[in-house]
């Protein structure tokens, strides 16, 4: 059996593995020799200065970006130009964006059922039940018939999280999910994410919410100029960072 095709791996293998990943935008070297492996149910927080390549890295994981060097395995599948592999990976990986990216022409419920019905081929009724279940979990079930434009930012982001969860993903990627929100809405979104982490979802989360990192992260990854400079459990990362660049970064944001 060809392991890289089927996604069947035993429980101890990393679910995501980046090996010497390199990416260029034209001549600009945006990711340099990235090595990162993420275990099942592990929660990673990625931080670093603006432009350091955080978004680019996690967008490689569901192939929103391609890469030019190295290897990237997700859930036992090697991500290359094979369309089958991309589809497989995208179905297993949910992504939450800074700007929510809900579909404005569809109701909240339709936003949630679209992919399960068309990609997972679930019957409509079943998809709607699942959708209502997740909407209730993000405490927004009463908004199901509204359109995204009628919701606040925090509500929209919770819908976006629910939309990803409806696909029943094994991995969730978050790219600065709270950066576009007003301060009073950040907590409601973080609460949902904390709960998700507690339930054992594998998560990679780009965020500058250091409270969140301390509370749930198993590991904090610090990136600068396209490199992973340091990765450590949160207590060591915040109290005793080894790199000067990390210290400088922490002194600026804390």
């Amino acid at each position: 059996m060809n392991e890289t095709q089927t996604g069947a791996t035993d429980g101890n293998d990393p679910i995501i593995e980046l090996r010497k990943l390199n990416k260029w935008y034209g001549s600009f070297h945006v990711l340099r020799d990235i090595d990162l492996s993420v275990a099942r149910q592990e929660r990673i927080v990625v931080c670093g200065p603006s432009g350091s390549g955080k978004s680019t890295m996690i967008r490689c994981i569901n192939k929103l970006e391609d890469y030019q060097g190295g290897e990237l395995h997700v859930d036992g599948t090697l991500l290359n130009d094979d369309v089958k592999n991309i589809d497989h990976v995208r179905r297993e990986v949910g992504m939450v964006f800074q700007h929510f990216n809900l579909f404005p022409h569809l109701t909240i419920l339709q936003n949630l059922t679209l992919a399960p019905v068309w990609v997972r081929k679930l019957p409509k009724k079943e998809a709607e039940d699942t959708a209502m279940h997740y909407l209730a979990r993000v405490k927004i079930a009463e908004q199901a018939k509204k359109y995204p434009g009628q919701l606040s930012g925090g509500q929209q982001q919770r819908v976006a999280i629910a939309r990803s969860l409806c696909m029943n993903p094994r991995i969730m990627l978050f790219d600065e999910p709270t950066s576009a929100l007003d301060p009073e809405m950040i907590k409601e979104v973080l609460d949902v994410m904390v709960e998700l982490a507690r339930e054992g979802m594998t998560m990679i989360c780009v965020t500058h919410e250091m409270g969140f990192a301390k509370e749930v992260a198993d590991r904090v990854v610090f990136m600068d100029a396209g490199e992973i400079v340091e990765q450590a459990p949160p207590d060591r990362f915040f109290d005793n960072p080894s790199s000067e660049r990390t210290k400088l970064f922490l002194s600026q944001i804390l």
Binding site: K63, L64, D87, M95, H99, L102, L114, V119, M167
Partner: peptide, 13 residues
């Protein structure tokens, strides 16, 4: 916005 295309992609459409 590009985000609409990306959201569709990330859902596996």
């Amino acid at each position: 916005p590009r985000g609409q295309f990306e959201a569709g992609d990330s859902l596996g459409l």
